[in-house]
Each structure stands twice: as C-alpha cells, then as structure tokens.
C-alpha cells in the first residue's frame, strides 16, 4: 500500500509544459528523492502535491484520498507538510510563536474561552507553549525561543521551518532543497537530521534536491525529472549509473 501515488501528472504555464505526465508512488516510511537539473519541474510537482497549483491532468492519491483539487490547508490537514526553497517563516513572530501557529491549527479552541480569558484559555496556551518548546528542544532551537524568526542564523531558520512543518503532525514531510545555502558541515549534518526525523516521528519524507551528493546518501529511492518528464526511477546506485541521468546533468555526450 502506497502512502502517496502520483498518476500522469501534467501542468502547463501558458503553453509551456512544466510537468509532463509524471507518475511515481512512495511507500510509507520511505525517504524518497525528487531530483533533476534546474528547471526540471521539481518545485512545480511540490506545488501541485501541496495544493498551490492545480494539475491540468492526472491524479494525486494520498492515503486513500484523491487530493488533486484540494486547497493547501485541507491537504495539510490530511497529513502533508512541506518546507520552501526560499525559507518562508513568519518573520515578525518569535521562534516559539512560529511553532505555536502550526500547533494551534489542531487544537480545539473556542472563541468564548479566548474572550473571557477562562482557565481553559490559559491552559491551552500553556500546553501549546510547552509542546512547542519540547519540539524546539529536540532540534536544539529552544535557546532561540524568544528571538524573532528572521533574526536566526540561516541554518537555524531552515531547521525551524522543518520543526514548524513537523508541528502540523504530518504523515508525509516534503523538503524543498533543504541543503540550499548550507555549507559543507551543515550538509553533512542534514543527512543525519533527515534520518533522525524519519525515525523519531515515523514519517515518510520526500526531498527535492539538485545536489546529487546530498541526495544519494539520504534517499532510499529516487525519481529523476528532466524538462518536466520522468527520465529515471530507482535506488541511488542505479540512478548514478543511468545514462539518461548522466546526460541530463552533464549534457549530451558528443560521439
């Protein structure tokens, strides 16, 4: 049984086919890579999976539900969380508030408790706060808890975005180029981080990356996109040796 199944997905932007008939399926607890050179359509696939773009053709089935035409917030509620290539934090909110916003979408609130400042209001606020701190602690971000999100160092911002995504209690976590802008040691850490997240939270993870080195170490299976089309699928070793992939990355070999 697959966690998510993508069938014949296509989308056009004003005549340009950005994603062309792409299909793949991810099993539960897999770390799955979506790779390809720049402009291959990776982020566009993400945007369709998370509901920001409506596919022109094809179907996305997540956990038994067809989510092709659903809105982003509904898709998130069904269990898909994501990060963004250009980090999108709530910049003016503090680190802990960033996480609370994610957490509170699943809490039962009543307007009346907030209005009357009842005991329940304070309890809920306290639980949200503690829960966020606990999450931040796991990723050693709790020392920044009262900083504004955009005051964090770059690597910490990436981490915070992941924490925030985890706070929505997803079944599938989608990371959009988590290594972008990271230095060597941070990239090495990323490998451990992703495995740690998968084991700790029992998640399935889908990663976009164009850095081959990063992805080969992390992923169980990989799909390669090139100019919107799927050109290869398999385990990292096979992908590395696949002629169309080499061609896509290095250009056509002159014979």
């Amino acid at each position: 049984m697959n966690l998510i199944e993508v069938k014949n997905l296509s989308i056009q932007f004003g005549g340009l086919t950005a994603v062309d008939n792409v299909s793949f399926a991810i099993k539960p607890n897999e770390i799955f890579g979506l790779i390809g050179p720049n402009g291959a359509g990776k982020t566009t696939v993400f945007n369709m999976l998370s509901g920001f773009y409506q596919a022109d053709h094809g179907e996305i089935i997540f956990n038994g539900n067809t989510i092709t035409d659903l809105k982003p917030h509904t898709i998130n509620r069904l269990g898909i969380a994501r990060t963004f290539q250009n980090i999108r934090l709530f910049k003016g909110l503090s680190v802990v508030e960033n996480v609370i916003v994610a957490l509170q979408q699943r809490e039962k609130h009543t307007w009346l408790d907030s209005l009357l400042e009842t005991k329940k209001f304070y309890q809920t606020e306290k639980i949200l706060f503690e829960h966020s701190i606990a999450l931040l602690k796991i990723f050693e971000l709790d020392r920044y808890k009262n900083h504004l999100a955009n005051a964090l160092p770059y690597g910490a911002q990436r981490k915070l975005e992941i924490v925030r995504a985890l706070a929505t209690q997803p079944k599938l976590l989608m990371l959009d180029e988590p290594a972008a802008g990271m230095n060597h040691s941070e990239k090495a850490e990323l490998n451990d981080l992703v495995r740690f997240i998968k084991n700790k939270f029992q998640l399935t993870i889908l990663i976009i990356e164009h850095d081959m080195k990063v992805i080969m170490n992390i992923c169980d299976r990989i799909v390669v996109l090139h100019r919107g089309q799927k050109i290869a699928e398999g385990v990292p070793l096979d992908i590395k040796a696949s002629p169309p992939v080499i061609e896509a990355y290095l250009g056509k070999r002159i014979t």
Binding site: F13, G14, T43, N47, F52, Q54, F84
Partner: peptide, 8 residues
C-alpha cells in the same frame, strides 16, 4: 487574465 500562478 491567466490563472495566477504565484511564484512559490
């Protein structure tokens, strides 16, 4: 108007 595809 084309369907707005916001850059994400």
């Amino acid at each position: 108007g084309s369907q707005l595809k916001e850059k994400i």
